[in-house]
Nucleic acid binder design. Structure first.
Lengths: 145, 145
DNA sequence: GCGTAATTTGTCATTTTTTGGCATATAAAA
DNA sequence: TTTTATATGCCAAAAAATGACAAATTACGC
């Protein structure tokens, strides 16, 4: 499970080291050092490749020319980039994603159990403040669990 | 699998380099460097030759005189061009297709699993904005899958 | 058919981006 | 504090993308 928050620096070439706890989890639980980075709301979302593959498998069986499914595929798959964790524990975040999310000098890793997110530090801090109120509301959802 | 988004420049003669990840996939999975480019909605659609063959196969089993299927066939097959990836990893996009889709200085490659699309950068960006809401909605579909 | 112009192709040079690996710095653990 | 693990900075090498140009091919008018 991916848990916790880590702030790491990003190199000029767009490389950043994945938190070692996340790497351990990837290795033990998923036996991979491949990730899929995609986009979701205000951050990059990262899936272990095996998890992502399940999703693609289902998608690949949808009709090729039906409008809804094509659009769905385009945005889901079109934003999905495969990244390998190198021998130093780093990934390189594709420049398109860095641009889209304003990720420049440092980024925040946020654990989300079976996936994790990468945020621009600025956006993350802003979002924290504004989400406190929302959090109160999401309590209600949690109660149902 | 073809995944992700790449922006590449296009030469005066209409040549553009296919993203290296796509080339790898073509080589490994399909053992070909031939593509079929055709038209669909607002972009050029590109199939590895073996995938295209499957598609033709399916098309050939559709009723021969039904209006919709004939029209669809005419559109898809009639616009199909075979392209070879050269030693530098480039294809040349036929000028008809470039005109049709307003592809001038640069183009966006969008992965779609077993095929990919080539968009004019302008059109792609417009399309992104208008489809942002749909995109958010399609994320919810993931949860259901 | 032939000659000319336009387009396409092959090849190499240049630029830009990505990668691999090591050295240093920082943080965590003993 | 010392040791160990983790993260970062740096640089050279490799790969990828782009640019440029000449040769080959095709299209077109006569």
């Amino acid at each position: 499970m991916f848990r916790g928050q880590f702030i790491h620096k990003i190199s000029k070439t767009g490389r950043i080291s994945v938190p070692s706890k996340f790497r351990d989890n990837l290795k033990k639980k998923y036996r991979t050092n491949f990730l899929i980075l995609s986009t979701f709301e205000n951050s990059i979302i990262c899936y272990p490749l095996p998890e992502w593959d399940k999703l693609e498998d289902k998608l690949s069986r949808l009709p090729q020319f039906k409008k809804e499914t094509v659009e769905f595929e385009r945005y889901l798959i079109g934003n999905a980039h495969e990244c390998e964790i190198d021998t130093e524990g780093r990934i390189m975040i594709p420049s398109i994603l860095r641009k889209d999310f304003n990720i420049n000098n440092s980024a925040v890793f946020v654990g989300m159990l079976s996936r994790f997110e990468i945020w621009s530090e600025k956006v993350w801090k802003k979002s924290l403040v504004s989400s406190f109120k929302k959090f109160q509301k999401s309590r209600e959802v949690i109660d149902e669990i």
